[in-house]
Design a protein around this nucleic acid. Structure first.
Length: 770
DNA sequence: GATGTGAAGCTTTTT
DNA sequence: GCTTCACATC
């Protein structure tokens, strides 16, 4: 028997040894999925498959890197470097580079990140004479993104009755036209957004039979990780690519499908067996990760969902400790409690910072945890949020590099044309864009022939200097590698100097960030590429790589830190000790996702993912009150709490002061299955007891109001001017004005004691008095 | 054209 | 509560 097969259980071995024909591996949480995938690849290679014929697709760069590393480890050689292992986006981007001209794109096409894309949407909305307050870039972009992920072209969108109806209903009938204009603008800019990397690749395969057969022949063995999260575009691509050999192996877990908001359809995994004549199905049901208690709780939770692939996860691990379910008075107390618990665990059970993860539903929740950890001097790192590459100074610098490579990239050009300031102001830029649109050329072309467009002499001169500088950089493109060119750019543009001269704290941070960027470019040019295919150290090669990187990907140092991230970001990871915060109604499950059974089930799967990240110990926490939108809100405990098996729980309450914790046990009043009702009295006294350092802000002078007995929020969807209402904190008042978008109405209320306030009805709880 | 101020936006998740 | 954006001022 091959050495690599040792240590696999029966099902895992079955999955590895099945060489030809479609196979679906249903891999429960912690069941050794990556091990199976990597061993499978090793087995293919060991039995004579050429590494060039293998394609393995993942969702994150991290997963791809790990897979590559582990295959190499099993094989003990570097054959793996010739395998196409990468994310959907990066692998397709690489192929699209090579085939760009067939689709009419420049080889050096730019990849627009979400910010770039939204900016283009805004530009286009304005150019169509529409109001970007109503056609919000965010909303419109999401709509376009969904269309692309469903492989719907602008023409199809405009002609689709259902979609048009939806847009009519939301009073945004022009989205189809915006979509069309957006695509045209991206094309003109020589740019693809994230979704294009899938969509255009699909179109390439669909419209160029020779390309299709080329890649079908190349990718004889295809492996897909996290199949439950694929969207329609990805699904169709896999189907096309795999049609010739049908050696498609998909690995996934329907219970962990959490990306439907991004177009993923759980149907893809539920239907896989019907896509091919004979599908081998293997269930991996033994969990090697978690304690029995943790797994038991997870199983209980997910059992509340309908329509799952039938399976029962089990483990031979130790029973482990009970799950701690902790209620706190406020979100700050929650943060404090978690930081204290980490400290205590470190002392008592010899954990290191690295062993802990704090998971939450929304990024905004990180704040209270952050503050407490900082106060306790516990090192931490937040994953997600603004990534390094989205920072302003980094984007500015990268925009220079983008323009050098693809001067058609109008977004980048607009960013840098007057940064650092060189006297090309807003009006000059607007003029250039206008000329470009009128003459159907790029903005760069207009700048190159600025003399013909009637700029005044002084402006003309600075424009020409700018153009000459960029052209000079371009002429170095062939001669210099990415790093040397970047240094040249930094010097000649004065960008680095400008930041260096800024001695404010932020300026210093920005300067350091630029240095860090330059370091990473240097590292890129000095590390041998693993692609085998090309040892390309050019700027183009660099830019392609980094656009698809996210914050989670650069584990710089991987030092000993507590990790904070959203549950979404934690998928695929595991930690010895996990804290899941904010188990409250409207937060988790999120208010946005409780309208349909499907949405609620996805939230529950998310909770399942959170629980199953834990190996040894698990804490679930929730707060009575928490600041949201600057308003103190009260939330009921999450409905998911009721789905936890009582016998595996260890309940506790933590007020403002941890030391009183032991004596302050969960009482029978709170334990009532109906969820506890916090009286405002109890609530406020808890707030008052907070030590001074925990007070969040210089308190706004509000005349505190005690809600009426049995305060229940009313349905405010038809709230009218003139109505009388009661607000939990501000008291009684009269609605004097209604405004805001239909889905986000805002009421101006004149309160008896607290003046006029604007209240967002989506978030505030109001009781209609009359 | 740069800088400062106040209001309005926002918060579901991201390759 | 925090961030972004528009507008006003110098």
């Amino acid at each position: 028997m091959q050495v690599y097969l040792e240590g696999l259980n029966e099902q895992q071995r079955e999955a590895v040894l099945h060489r030809d024909g479609p196979i679906m591996i249903v891999a429960g949480a912690g069941s050794g999925k990556t091990k199976v995938l990597t061993t499978r690849i090793a087995h293919l290679l060991a039995t004579g498959v050429d590494p060039f014929n293998i394609l393995a697709l993942t969702f994150t760069n991290k997963a791809a890197a790990e897979m590559k590393e582990r295959v190499e480890h099993i094989l003990g050689n570097n054959e793996a470097r010739n395998i196409y292992i990468g994310t959907f986006h990066s692998v397709f981007a690489r192929i699209l580079r090579a085939e760009a001209e067939k689709l009419g794109y420049p080889r050096n096409f730019t990849i627009y990140d979400t910010d770039d894309a939204k900016s283009v949407v805004k530009t286009v909305v304005n150019e169509l004479g529409l109001d970007d307050k109503h056609y919000k870039p965010n909303t419109v972009y999401n709509r376009i993104s969904s269309a692309k992920n469903a492989l719907i072209t602008p023409e199809e969108y405009i002609n689709d009755y259902g979609l048009q109806q939806e847009d009519m209903r939301s009073n945004r009938p022009m989205i189809g036209q915006i979509y069309d204009a957006y695509c045209k603008r991206c094309y003109k800019n020589g740019a693809m957004d994230f979704d294009d990397l899938l969509l255009k690749f699909y179109l390439l395969l669909k419209t160029h039979p020779e390309s299709l057969s080329k890649y079908q022949r190349k990718f004889k063995y295809i492996m897909i990780d996290e199949y439950q999260d694929t969207n329609t575009a990805q699904y169709q691509i896999i189907k096309l690519l795999g049609a010739m050999h049908e050696n498609v192996a998909v690995v996934g877990d329907d219970a962990q499908s959490i990306y439907s908001f991004r177009g993923a359809t759980i149907e893809n995994i539920l239907q896989f067996q019907k896509d091919y004549d004979e599908v081998k199905v293997v269930m991996l049901e033994q969990n090697y990760r978690s304690s029995q208690s943790i797994l038991h709780v997870a199983n209980n939770v997910i059992a509340n969902n309908k329509g799952q692939l039938p399976k029962k996860l089990w483990t031979s691990n130790a029973e482990g400790e009970k799950i701690k379910l902790v209620r706190t008075a406020t979100d700050n107390d929650e943060g404090k409690y978690v930081a204290d618990a980490i400290q205590e665990q470190k002392l008592r059970n010899h954990y290191r910072n690295n062993d802990f993860a704090i998971l939450y539903r929304t990024n905004a929740q990180s704040r209270s945890f952050e503050e407490s950890l900082r106060r306790m001097n516990i090192a931490y790192r937040i994953y997600g949020g603004i990534s390094f590459y989205q920072r302003k100074e980094i984007k500015d610098f990268l925009s220079y590099l983008r323009v050098i490579l693809n001067p058609g990239d109008e977004e980048a050009l607009k960013r840098i044309i007057n940064f650092p300031a060189r006297g090309i102001g807003k009006t000059s830029v607007e003029k250039a864009v206008l000329f470009a649109n009128q003459n159907n050329v790029s903005m760069w072309n207009v700048l190159g022939q600025a003399a013909q467009f009637g700029y005044k002499a002084s402006t003309l001169e600075v424009i020409n200097n700018f153009v000459i500088m960029i052209k000079m950089f371009q002429s170095e493109l062939q001669k210099k590698n990415a790093y040397d060119l970047s240094i040249l750019v930094g010097k000649n543009t004065g960008l680095v100097k400008e930041l260096f001269n800024d001695k404010t704290t932020e300026g210093l941070a920005r300067y350091e960030n630029i240095q860090e960027l330059l370091n990473s470019i240097k590292e890129f040019t000095e590390t041998p590429t693993e692609d085998g295919e090309l040892l390309d150290k050019s700027l183009g090669s660099y830019l392609q790589q980094i656009t698809l990187l996210t914050d989670a990907d650069d584990d710089k140092g991987e030092s000993d830190v507590v990790k904070l991230m959203t549950i979404h970001a934690a998928k695929g990871l595991e930690f010895p000790v996990v804290f899941v915060g904010g188990l409250e109604e409207t937060l988790f499950p999120n208010a946005m996702s409780i309208n349909t059974r499907e949405e609620l089930e996805e939230e529950r799967r998310l909770f399942y993912v959170a629980i199953t990240r834990a190996k040894q110990r698990l804490w679930l926490t929730y707060a009575n009150t928490r600041y949201r939108f600057g308003n103190l809100t009260q939330n009921d405990p999450s409905r998911f709490i009721e789905e936890l098996p009582e016998e595996r729980l260890d309940r506790a309450f933590a007020g403002g002061n941890m030391r009183n914790n032991q004596s302050n046990q969960w009482n029978s009043f709170d334990k009532a299955k109906t969820g506890f009702r916090t009286s405002s009295q109890e609530n406020r006294s808890a707030t008052k007891e907070k030590p001074a350092y925990m007070v969040t802000s210089p308190v706004v002078k509000i005349k505190e109001h005690t809600p009426t007995e049995g305060f229940t929020p009313s349905d405010t969807s038809n709230l009218q001017e003139g109505q009388k209402i009661e607000h939990q904190k501000f008291g009684f008042g009269e609605v004097i004005k209604m405004e805001g978008a239909a889905h986000n109405p805002v009421a101006t209320v004149k309160f008896e004691h607290n003046g006029e306030k604007k209240i967002m009805l989506n978030y505030a709880k109001l009781r209609i008095v009359e």
